[in-house]
Computed example of a mutant assay.
Amino acid sequence: MKRHPSGPIVIAAGGTGGHLFPGQALAQELRRRGRKIVLMTDERVQRFDKLFPEADIFEVPSATPSGGGLVGMVKAVPSIIAGIARSIAVLQRVKPAALIGFGGYPTLPPVAAAIVRGVPCCVHEQNAVLGRVNRLVAPHVHAVASTFEAPKFLKSRDASKLVLTGNPVRDAVIAQADRPYQAPQSNGLFHLLVFGGSQGARVMSDVVPGALALLPQEMRARLRVVQQARPEDIERVRGIYEEAGIAAELASFFDDMPERIAAAHLVIGRSGASTVSELSVIGRPAILVPLPHSLDNDQKANAEKFGSAGAGWMIEQKDFTEEMLSSRLQTLFNNSGELVAAAQAAKKMGQPQAVRELANLVEALGRGDYHPLRDRAAKNAAIESGSTNLNFAAGGA
């Protein structure tokens, strides 16, 4: 396929926030650089189309193999093939400079089409575990951008393609990055934020309200809770808080979540890649409850990285009980120094430059002047010399 260096950048991202938010962050940065954006995703994009207001959006058929076995894979094949055909047609029409996939099965057809058509292509891995689609396409793409230095399941044959960019966060998150953490004062208000990712998590509604109700009355009076809950759970959760005398604001979705994170003394949530990245850039301590039974335990790996850095505490869902959580919260209530230390550790993990690094990579691919070995050597030299300019040698902005 003929190169089109000035063409649009195609972002392929699945219809969940964990994949779309990094894509949105990249789109915002590329738009500032004057690039046109094309988004290719699945039917769930209707919930998130406002995240890409200036992009041309194409819905692409896809399917996730159910059950993980051969039968599930066979059932998914027709939709994947249809998605590849649709993606090839889109690429022929828009003539992109490059394509980047953000993982998940909805990105497989666009990435496969880019490989077939010879469109410069890379993938980004947000988690500490390389996802199955990214593992599948890694031998065939030009680069594997990563949040972590050594994502699990990256094969040695593909290690030379790894580019440590970090996980891009949205402009709204960057806007809160300089907001300092204010430690809770003794006898002052304690702001607690509870959420379970872009689609909610029932376990938060099942456990957190009851755990808070077990706290001593003096602590309950100090609490100011903001909690995301599924629509069908809101009234049940509200009733528990009202009976316990706890002030709570509930909604099924908050469109100002970065501000909510910045205002919190403590966050309780899942450990998806976007959540961990946003907590780190803003610098807030968290109790993380990984989604159980997720493919390859990627959320557990993320939470372990966060916890081992001293930024928070992981509680596996099987141990996430009202009594256990209430006890942990009482300890933190009485130890603001522990919260401050965790907030500082989270901040050290932050990668606010990630979106620039990833945009540099994608643009270099589009120009045809990205060379992994040369650019890695240039970056290493910059680090050794103490330079903060880590842009790709081949024309980073």
Score class of each variant (00 low, 15 high):
Ile11Val: 03
Ala12Ser: 14
His19Asp: 03
Gly23Lys: 07
Gln24Ile: 08
Ala25Trp: 03
Leu26Trp: 10
Arg31Tyr: 06
Arg32Gln: 15
Arg35Ile: 02
Arg35His: 10
Lys36Trp: 00
Ile37Ser: 06
Val38Tyr: 03
Val38Asp: 00
Gln46His: 14
Arg47Phe: 14
Phe48Leu: 01
Phe52Pro: 05
Phe52Tyr: 04
Ala55Tyr: 00
Ile57Phe: 09
Pro61Tyr: 10
Ser62Lys: 11
Pro65Ser: 04
Gly67Lys: 10
Val71His: 13
Met73Pro: 00
Met73Tyr: 12
Val77Gly: 02
Pro78Asp: 00
Ile80Cys: 08
Ala85Gln: 09
Arg86Phe: 03
Ala98Tyr: 10
Ile100Tyr: 10
Gly101Ile: 04
Phe102Asp: 06
Tyr105Thr: 03
Pro106Arg: 01
Thr107Phe: 13
Val111Gln: 08
Ala114Val: 07
Arg117Cys: 12
Arg117Asn: 10
Val119Leu: 10
Cys121Leu: 13
Val123Pro: 07
Glu125Pro: 10
Ala128Trp: 05
Val129Phe: 12
Val133Lys: 00
Arg135Thr: 09
Val137Glu: 10
His140Gln: 02
Glu149Met: 01
Pro151Asn: 01
Leu154Ser: 06
Ser156Leu: 12
Ser156Trp: 08
Arg157Gln: 13
Val163Glu: 13
Asn167Lys: 05
Arg170Met: 15
Asp171Lys: 12
Gln176Ile: 02
Asp178Gly: 02
Tyr181His: 03
Gln182Glu: 15
Gln182Tyr: 01
Leu189Asp: 14
Phe190Trp: 12
Leu193Glu: 08
Val203Lys: 01
Met204Arg: 09
Met204Ile: 13
Leu215Thr: 02
Glu218Asn: 02
Arg222Ser: 06
Leu223Asn: 05
Arg224Asp: 04
Arg224Gly: 09
Val226Glu: 03
Gln227Phe: 00
Gln227Leu: 11
Asp233Glu: 06
Val237His: 08
Pro258Leu: 04
Pro258Gln: 03
His265Pro: 08
Leu266Cys: 11
Ser271Ile: 09
Ala273Cys: 13
Val276Cys: 15
Ser277Pro: 06
Ser277Ile: 08
Leu279Ser: 08
Leu279Val: 00
Pro285Gln: 12
Ile287Ser: 07
Leu291Pro: 04
Asn297His: 15
Lys300Leu: 15
Ala301Arg: 05
Lys305Gly: 05
Gly307Ser: 13
Gly307Met: 15
Ala309Asn: 06
Ile315Leu: 11
Glu316Ser: 13
Asp319Phe: 07
Phe320Gly: 12
Met324Val: 04
Gln330Phe: 02
Ser336Asn: 05
Leu339Gln: 11
Val340Asp: 00
Ala342Asn: 14
Gln353Thr: 11
Arg356Trp: 04
Glu357Met: 15
Ala359Asn: 05
Asn360Tyr: 05
Leu373Tyr: 07
Asp375Tyr: 06
Arg376Gly: 00
Ala378Arg: 12
Lys379Asn: 01
Lys379Arg: 15
Ala382Thr: 06
Gly386Met: 10
Leu390His: 08
Asn391Trp: 13
Phe392Thr: 08
